[in-house]
Design a protein around this nucleic acid. Structure first.
Lengths: 233, 233
DNA sequence: TCAAAAGTGTTCTTGATACACCCATGC
DNA sequence: GCATGGGTGTATCAAGAACACTTTTGA
């Protein structure tokens, strides 16, 4: 590592896998490329890292610029450095994943970025660069993380029903869960606060609303928790 | 992301946290810097990423060049991109961690790299750059990973006793473990093969040697396993 | 014969799993 | 009154936790 190193340098970008949850489906936000290479293909939002910003800042800036998203849950995923992942030149990308409350952000993103769209994970089109690989890595990470950290709540509205929460977990984990055991378990953690309000939606019994109490969670955090519920049937 | 982007670029390096285990202690391999900045300080092995090599390849090359290490367990850790983490210029570092069987590599590293030394985690000197931060992140990752993946074996000789394994887990997790429960649990996984040989060491009963059966492990892998044993006493 | 680490089983407690019916509402 | 999703409790089973003594060896 010498001071005068002047060999050619890889370029550095960030790419963001933005997850949302809606209508029982996990979704990902993609941008339609307007330029070569891969013009017209869908891609993850992202761009070059500037010399005066941190990696996190670059990711947040790109989310804002390309998708109109602010104040979302954001975490670094992995850095991808295959030599030929970009046909133009050597580009290393630090990938992030973001969790978005679709209920609050869907409209914004749609207006700010006309070339942005949400795709259900099951219907993602062919992606530019190695973005399919990055997306796959992000899905794996999300699956793993959701089991021992309550990041699922970042995908739900501030007030949600236990059924919504269960459906989210089922979508992420790709299983079905037993309703009674699910409720028993999540309530046992003690960081779900029942609200006075209920939610009426459709011609059936209204559902109790809850919110996530992050303070209570922080207190319990050290012990860690495990979220392992078996498939139903 | 335009073709003609020519703004100043961050430089890109890899840094490696190399763990070893010896005499009941977790250790980390450090290099004494010969150049400014931080001349004379200890630092993680690492260096610039070349345009024609992947990130993994860069990490392996640096391990070979700076520490004489080949064929070790290596996994990407996290990318560090604070703007002022290097006083010379903007440098983003993709950090890796490596697990080394000290029994096999200790001698080599010592001769190949005169300025390399193993430090017990409890006696790490002040480090250059943000390397203390990187090291801390690596320790956390190791702690987390060891609970659900059998990477502990990468730190032990090919043939080891259950006591060695237990001490390794105790060192990594920072707890003490109950001997009977520990043995019951690790043996129940079925990927530890007892060998015919025993190990005599000191004036006491000789210990049964085992080896890690990675084929058997691969078969069991999908189910996942959890390694949660309580503190003793 | 003593010191030092290796080795071994059982009880108790806790948490996971499986499972079926009534409730409140809108149409 | 019926269709729809919301809501609830118990019995069984498996795994984790606690715990103390005997064995083998070298000095």
């Amino acid at each position: 590592m010498s001071y005068t190193y002047q060999y050619p340098r890889p370029a550095l970008t960030v790419d963001c896998v933005v997850f949302g949850f809606d209508e029982g489906d996990l979704k990902v936000l993609l941008i339609e490329r307007g330029l070569q290479p891969f013009k017209g293909r869908w891609a993850l939002p992202g761009g070059f890292v500037r010399v005066d910003e941190t990696l996190d800042a670059a990711a947040r800036r790109e989310l804002q610029e390309e998708a109109g998203l602010k104040n979302v849950f954001l975490e670094q995923l992995y850095s991808f450095g295959d030599v030929d992942r970009d046909p133009r030149e050597r580009i290393v990308s630090v990938a992030y994943y973001a969790l978005v409350k679709l209920s609050e952000h869907a409209a914004k993103a749609a207006t700010d970025a006309a070339n942005a769209r949400w795709f259900p994970l099951s219907r993602v089109p062919k992606l530019a660069f190695d973005h399919a690989h990055i997306l796959g890595t992000a899905v794996e990470r999300l699956k793993g993380k959701v089991r021992y950290q309550p990041i699922g709540f970042e995908l739900l509205p501030p007030r949600f029903t236990l059924s919504q929460l269960q459906h989210l977990y089922e979508a992420v984990l790709g299983t079905t869960l037993d309703k009674r055991n699910f409720r028993k378990k999540v309530l046992s953690f003690g960081f779900l606060l029942p609200l006075k309000e209920t939610q009426m939606l459709g011609r059936h019994r209204p559902a109790q609303l809850f919110r996530f109490d992050s303070e209570k969670y922080e207190k319990l955090k050290r012990r860690g928790f495990h979220f392992e519920l078996e498939r139903h049937k």
